[in-house]
Amino acid sequence: MCVRVEQHCILDVDKKEKKVKITVDGKEIEAYEGEPILAALLASGIKVNRYTVKKHEPRGLFCGIGQCSDCSMVVDGKANVRTCITPVKEGMVIMTQDGLK
């Protein structure tokens, strides 16, 4: 599944940033350096970022601008990283956040 915007009548969607690899739950995916982690995940079809503490319900992108925390994941061992406002770096290790607070 490819969900990047490949063509656009107004925007220049050709990425000029460097292509890098990051790991998500043990699986390697491609991403562009500097784009929000969340965008790279969506581009690979990953929509669940965390599960809630009490009811274990899935959560994903909701506000896209750092206000709701629904997109929080564990990034390089640190929990509660809002992936919609955190840029991708080469080799990042990302995990679905499950129940952590």
Partner: peptide, 17 residues
């Protein structure tokens, strides 16, 4: 998600939600 969130994804990040 919010309509604004979807707009950010397509127009800023160039990824479809």
């Amino acid at each position: 998600m919010g309509a604004g969130a979807a707009q950010t994804m397509i127009n800023v990040n160039h990824v479809k939600p």
